[in-house]
Design a binder for these strands. Structure first.
Lengths: 249, 249
DNA sequence: CGTAACCTTGATTAAGATCAATTCTCGTGG
DNA sequence: CCACGAGAATTGATCTTAATCAAGGTTACG
């Protein structure tokens, strides 16, 4: 792997987008690439902490698991984003100790998942010398906090129906805004206008919504019967967005 | 209010404990004190954001509320800690806009609650010039993330019994470590050895555990019948810590 | 000592988990 | 190219947890 290619990889990560070339070079020196296939574990929460993860390609789920084996997905990570930043600041002395662990479990949920692992100790040094990076990280963590906050709100105050409706709408709005950004829209004529493509398995979706596959299946069916959506495998066609939005209230 | 007293107040806040006198003086210049009685609202999540809150005295609950009026307490804040930091980093341009809101609702749950409110814009300036403060804030947010993470784990994967047992044990261990720190332990002879004092109402405890008062009451009773604890008003005497710990598994 | 807020208790209900049995889908090898 | 088999998804029946509804009881405080 050439240095140039490694630097190019680092530039894909939002957190590092404002770094200078020399800072990127420093960062590169204590960063290494790792690849995973679907279903492979990046780390367990019982493992000693190595460092910050940056997702280049593929998809990763961060999840907790109960004694009985029930999973709850706290976060789904997409390329360009970082995760496992928190343990860096575990110890007041700004030193990563051996008894520092990951805050969650992480599994690749796509083939050809590629991550960069940034060693914690030297990263902490770089962070001290780079106020801009500090600021960017503050902003990253803030966004995460906001997301977790709203996740808590969802699972503690809303029922499964509302949570699912919210998810579908959020994914739809995400895909709409992405579509607007794309220049070449030829392929759009091929697919249904108001539809989303589930990029995760129904099992994972259920466990992200704080439920199980059976309940998810039934709820999707209910929405279909009420004429709100049509479900065809991994794609959901939105038939009545207005009514669907009412479901979230 | 004298400047000196205001500075002394700022020093009570963990986030600011490492600041120099001149930095504290700067901070003081855009900070103001506010007092609340039990039940009074500090802010609603629908309000435009003013700035960072620092709790000097009393107790504050941060909570979400459903359309039906059901509350869920995300966080209970004790003196020395800060809250409502997140919106500071809402906008990439590092500017607080009028359309930035609080992430949660905040209510005082004790009389004589005192907070310092730090204006967002000048605080952001101070933060840019003070890398140490940046670092400290990173550490604060990280701890918050970890807490929220474990909160999600609790409410999504554990039942009410387990959540309550965990809460009691955590409070007990907190009180034990605090007791060890205290020099004068005379008063200890007056109270039960293995007990905790609920410093919040049962309503608030229920809504923090993601349940309602009725269920909390029944669960406490169940624990009492099983000989794990004794409940006397706001104090819980731990009769069998070992068995109680087994309840969390 | 009266009253309002807080807490407990009981009966009922509902949401969603669990258990069990198919059915569907899709990748792989013959 | 088709058939097979495993994993994924659906469906139905049942059960469990905890919410809801409805009274009472307790406590604290003016």
């Amino acid at each position: 792997m050439s240095h140039l290619h490694e630097i190019k990889n680092l530039k894909k990560i939002l957190l590092f987008s404002d770094l200078s070339d020399s800072e990127l070079e420093t960062l590169r020196s204590f960063t290494h690439l790792k690849k995973f296939n679907k279903g492979e574990i990046l780390f367990f929460e019982t493992e000693p902490y190595q460092g910050l993860y940056c997702l280049l390609d593929g998809c990763v789920k961060l999840y907790k698991i109960s004694k009985e084996g029930r999973e709850h997905i706290v976060h789904i990570i997409h390329p360009g984003n970082t995760f496992a930043e928190v343990p860096i600041f575990e110890n007041n002395e700004n030193v990563i100790k051996d008894n520092t662990f990951y805050p969650v479990n992480a599994m690749s949920i796509e083939d050809f998942t590629e991550v960069l692992i940034v060693s914690a100790k030297p990263f902490l040094e770089l962070l001290k010398d780079t106020p801009d990076l500090c600021f960017k990280l503050l902003s990253t963590l803030s966004k995460r906090l906001k997301k977790l906050n709203s996740h808590i709100e969802n699972i503690s105050l809303l029922d499964v129906k509302k949570r699912l409706a919210k998810y579908i709408i959020a994914e739809f709005e995400k895909s709409v805004s992405q579509t607007h950004l794309e220049q070449n829209q030829k392929h759009l004529f091929l697919k249904e206008p108001d539809s989303i493509e589930l990029n995760i398995s129904k099992y994972d979706l259920a466990s992200h919504l704080g439920t199980i596959t059976e309940t998810l299946s039934r709820t999707l069916k209910k929405f279909q019967e009420e004429g709100l959506i049509d479900v065809q495998g991994k794609s959901i066609i939105i038939r009545n967005l207005k009514k669907l939005k009412k479901c979230t209230e």
